[in-house]
Structures are given as structure tokens and as C-alpha cells.
Amino acid sequence: MNLEIITDTTITSSAIYKDGTLFLANEEHLPFAQYCRKAYQLMEASYPKFFKMDNLCKLSFLTAELLLTENIGGALNGEKTAIILGNRSSSIISDQKHYESYVERENSFPSPAVFVYTLPNIMLGELCIRHQITGESSCFMMEDMDAAFLFHYVQDLLLNEGYEHCITGWVDFSPTEYGAELYLIGKRDKGEVKRPFGINFNQKV
């Protein structure tokens, strides 16, 4: 049994790539709010809940949306698919927003719609809902993307725990920067593995 990268998607503040091919360049250096709206429209995603999400969830949503295009996402068995992500900054953007809503006691109106996003694994929950994934969803906090850890974890899910597919990678949104890279990993019984899934899977060839 061989494990392979079926497809990958990267979003940085300057561009969006699908399998190394440019999908959208942020030539005007748009702030995230406009840039993500542009990407959303270009992906023709029709998902009103997107606009309720915080920036971390919007970023992971768009990355997964491009990763799981119709022909790929439709082929997943939700029960046999897991999502295992790395992240550094947790939900700091929403944390700060929630903090500001209660820190002045005389004007304290905490918002449940903000508070619900003050956990990093909510982005995994959103992806599970969107793509009907009901396997394990785990969020690991790391200072930078620990590909070796993710590799061992995901390999075990696929080889020993009966999973067929796994979405793995990195999504992070801090007050100063953001970026995401997601990989769809699958198994191959026969035929040539074009992109083997290995311990350095996030290194661009």
C-alpha cells in the first residue's frame, strides 16, 4: 500500500495555488477581507455561512474549497476521511475581539457569534460540516509546520485505523500574517504514485 498526495492548495497573502498552478494572484495587495471575497467569488462557492466565519475559518474554508473541487470532494467517504491540521496562533484574532467586548465593564456585550470562534478547532468543525466529514478532526498547535509529526499521525490513520483519505497541513492567522497549505492524502494499491506522501511532504519540489 502506498500513500500519495492527491492534490494540494496553498494560500498566502500574495497568491493562491492549486497543485503548483496559480489560481489567483493578489496583485493589488488587497487586505484579507477583500482578497478572500475575491477568491470566494472566483471559486463560485455558494455558502452563505462563509460570511459568518472569522478570518481563520475563512482562510481554511477557501483552502479546502479549492482542494476539494467537485470531482475530488464528491468522491470522499465522509466516515473514512479525517482532518489533521497544524496551527500556531490559535484563534487569536477572535480572542482579541472577544476580549475587547468585555474588558470595559460598563459597556460589556460579549457576542456569542464571536466567542464561538475562540477555539482553533472550530475551523475543522466548519470543514467537516461543509464537506460532511465525520472522521477524526484534530488540531495540533506548533510553532511552525511540523511535517514529520503530521506525516506519522496521518500515515497511521490511513494504514492502521481504516481511513481512506486525510486532509492535512497548516492553517494559521495571526495579527501580522496568515497562510495556509492543505494536502489531500490517499492510498494507492497499484499503478505509479506520482506524488508520494513522505516525511517532508510539505517541501516543494
Binding site: G78, I83, V116, I122, L124, G125, E126, C128, I129, H131, Q132, I133, T134, G135, E136, S137, S138
Partner: peptide, 18 residues
């Protein structure tokens, strides 16, 4: 074992499927 409801980000699933 771990599993996701894929139902709602804060409300428990009515069916307890996850």
C-alpha cells in the same frame, strides 16, 4: 476513537451520531 458530528459548530447533534 474520535469522530465529528459534521452538524453544527456549537450545538450538540440531535442524533448523537458523532
Amino acid at each position: 476513537g474520535q469522530a465529528n458530528d459534521a452538524n453544527h459548530i456549537s450545538g450538540p447533534s440531535r442524533t448523537g451520531r458523532g
